[in-house]
Write a protein that binds this DNA or RNA. Structure first.
Lengths: 195, 195
DNA sequence: CTTTTGTTTAACAATTTTGTCAAACTCAAA
DNA sequence: TTTGAGTTTGACAAAATTGTTAAACAAAAG
């Protein structure tokens, strides 16, 4: 069967991603998704058969984009510090656009609906760990479990973006003020990580 | 009207907290809560009238416990470094037990169902910021926006616990190995924060 | 212009989840 | 032991959400 490509299928998927990852509405109903997309709810079933299948597709694509972004940084053949700088930039921008994506992945993992695809990310991480170890041996980094280094890095990048609403409330800041703070963090994270 | 206190009301509330905060099942149904508590679902309505009211109570109590824990640390009249050490301990233990509590608070905030009670946490935070500023002026801390210091601290503490399932998958670790890593972090966070 | 095929819509059915009610039950007080 | 207030239960009703179907529609092909 051929297709006429009215763009509706992609529109629904993009809208779902926006609701889930950008607005944090992790349990939006098909009606809410359809309304946000400005289409008839039945089209969700027409294109995706069921809500669960839409969920799965969005979930998997989210993981792929996320993985690809990180891989491009990891695999680039440039000095370690530059690599980290690129990572901070790429990750921050990604997370700014979709702050709740990781959160979505985690909650879905907790529902046991999706078995986390061990698409052997483990191996690529091992390479990154080795690279970090070399830097530590050369005295470029404070010695510690390289996994702690990675955890530190991602914590400093991701957490303030994931918890943005909470932080804004605690500090009494508006969106612009917080965005500025996040921009300043890029350099600050770099300095913190490298002592 | 007096009460006979069979413990059922508290049991339901505790079970809900456990599902939400410990297991991350943020959208557990009343049936699931009742089953987990081993009681008839109707009792949820008997004690709380509606599911939303149960949600609100659990949500508010979560905020209160969280706030109280932090306040006790903030208000204690001890040297700054000790205060931070206590904070790291208290916060880590709390988050270990209920890793998804903050996540729950955030997603609820995004549903616009609950207006974040600005119970003037802002003021207490201001005092803490001042205290940090003094330390920076005295050269005890690297100079930066004190809010960044706070964000760094909470990011390093909370994020690896919130994203535990993800991290375990990425690093290929089991529960015990990850718990050990988290324990080692307490000291590591302290050192990272104080350069 | 007619046909064909893919798309969209509304009405309907099925399922899931929540809320209500009266009856049964339990335990303490009279 | 009876009475009575609070508790628990199952049956039922209501609401919300999802899934299905047939008919209307739109655009390309013949």
């Amino acid at each position: 069967m051929s297709t006429r490509d009215t763009g509706t299928e992609q529109l629904i998927k993009d809208t779902a991603k926006h609701l889930f990852f950008a607005e944090g509405k992790l349990h939006a109903t098909t009606q809410e998704i359809a309304d946000a997309a400005g289409v008839n709810r039945t089209l969700v079933n027409y294109y995706f058969r069921s809500r669960d299948i839409l969920f799965d597709q969005v979930f998997n694509e989210a993981q792929d984009v996320f993985s690809t972004t990180l891989d491009e940084v990891f695999e680039s053949n440039i000095p370690f510090k530059e690599k980290i700088r690129n990572l901070i930039n790429a990750f921050t921008e990604e997370t700014k656009e979709y702050p709740y994506r990781q959160l979505f992945i985690i909650t879905e993992m907790n529902r046991d609906l999706v078995l986390y695809s061990k698409r052997s990310r483990v191996n690529k991480v091992k390479e990154f760990i080795d690279e970090i170890q070399v830097e530590m041996d050369n005295g470029e980094l404070r010695k510690m479990d390289p996994r702690q280094f990675i955890i530190n890095l991602f914590s400093l990048m991701a957490h303030p973006l994931i918890t943005a609403p909470l932080q804004k409330a605690i500090f009494g800041m508006n969106d612009d003020e917080y965005a500025k703070l996040m921009e300043e963090r890029k350099e600050l994270i770099f300095e913190t990580i490298f002592r």
